[in-house]
Computed example of a mutant assay.
Amino acid sequence: MPFALLDRWLSPAPDPRKVAWLGAQDYAHRGLHGAGVPENSRAAFARAIQAGHGIELDVQRSSDGQPVVFHDDGLERLTAETGPVARRSAAQLGAIALTGSAETIPTLRQVLAQVAGQVPVLIEIKSERGSRVAALCLAVRRVLEGYMGPHAVMSFDPRVSRWYWRHSPHTVRGLVVSESDARGVSGAIRRHLALWHCRPDFLAYDVRDLPSRFAGAQRRRGVPVATWTVRDAEDDARVEAFADAAIFEGTVGKARTGAPADRE
Rank of each mutant, 00 (worst) to 15 (best):
D232I: 10
R159V: 03
D64E: 01
L5A: 15
I189E: 08
W9R: 05
V37K: 08
V225Q: 06
T257H: 11
E81A: 15
E124L: 12
S212I: 04
A188E: 14
V69F: 13
L57H: 13
Y27Q: 09
L175Y: 01
G187E: 13
A182G: 08
Q114N: 13
V140H: 04
D58N: 05
L144K: 00
R142W: 09
Q114S: 13
W228D: 00
V133N: 07
H29C: 01
R129L: 14
D58C: 04
L144H: 01
S131T: 11
K254N: 09
R8C: 13
V160A: 09
L175I: 05
K254L: 15
A91L: 09
V115H: 15
A91K: 06
G258S: 07
A20V: 08
Q60I: 04
H192D: 11
S155C: 14
D72T: 05
L112D: 14
A35M: 10
R213H: 09
T79Q: 03
R8A: 15
V176W: 04
D206V: 04
R183P: 05
W196V: 00
H197A: 11
R208L: 10
L122R: 04
L203F: 02
I189S: 06
T171S: 12
P106S: 12
T107M: 07
V59Y: 11
G250A: 08
G94E: 03
Q60E: 14
S11H: 02
A215F: 01
D235C: 12
E240C: 11
